[in-house]
């Protein structure tokens, strides 16, 4: 595999052909914020927080670092006023959905985002897809699905599969940047396969 030389924030970085800009930056110790990225999963490009400015042949444009492959002589800038402003807006938009997410609160502080800039429409889910993709790609259980489209899009546990697979797994729980996933799971459990999980019921039996 041939080596590619590119420049990130004025620093020369060596990368291999198959890497993305995000991976190259991380290997050089340069921090790019992400939300929907996970090392074990295919890049998704859902949250756009990793947006950076790239320059090729004198032309600069904004791309998602987690998807953009490295190229020879690429110039990457991870912090420009434009990029920072964009990230701030993305954080503010996400906070309209999940105002109390710890990950978002940290990012908001870093980028000076105002959590009340947009009217709150608390769906509590950021649609980062971490749970859905982890279940599909790593566990290959396919127990969670995105349903519906546009503004109505949401995650759903599929009761038939979740009742078989989820009780002893729950590996997706710590991935969720909010707590919506847990809530969605326990709601599904309560509605679709409640018996054994109902602690109060188990106690009264004794």
């Amino acid at each position: 595999m041939s080596e590619i030389l590119l420049q990130i924030d004025g620093k020369d970085v060596k990368a291999t052909e198959t890497m993305t800009v995000l991976e190259a930056a991380r290997s050089a110790g340069i921090h790019i914020p992400t939300l929907c990225h996970h090392e074990k999963l295919e890049p998704y490009g859902g949250c756009r927080l990793c947006t950076v400015e790239v320059e090729t042949r004198g032309r600069a444009r904004l791309v998602a670092a987690c998807l953009f492959p490295v190229q020879p002589d690429l110039i990457v800038r991870t912090h420009t006023p434009e990029v920072d402003k964009l990230r701030k807006t993305i954080i503010e938009l996400l906070m309209a959905h999940a105002p109390d997410s710890f990950e978002l609160l940290d990012l908001a502080q870093e980028y000076g985002a105002d959590r009340n800039r947009f009217d709150q429409e608390s769906s509590f889910c950021l649609l980062c897809g971490l749970c859905v993709r982890y279940c599909n790609e790593v566990k290959q259980k396919n127990a969670i699905a995105f349903v519906d489209c546009g503004a109505k899009r949401e995650i759903n546990f599929i009761p038939e599969i979740a009742s078989q697979e989820c009780r002893d797994c729950k590996e997706c729980f710590p991935l969720c940047p909010t707590s919506y996933l847990q809530a969605a799971y326990f709601l599904t459990e309560a509605l679709a396969f409640p018996h054994e999980s109902n602690a109060a019921h188990a106690l009264t039996k004794k």
């Binding site: 859905v132 396919n142 969670i144 699905a145 349903v147 519906d148 599929i158 599969i161």
Partner: peptide
């Protein structure tokens, strides 16, 4: 096709 994929497509369109 995984069932969650079918469900996703069937609810999307």
């Amino acid at each position: 096709v995984p069932f969650n994929r079918v469900l996703q497509v069937a609810t999307f369109y």
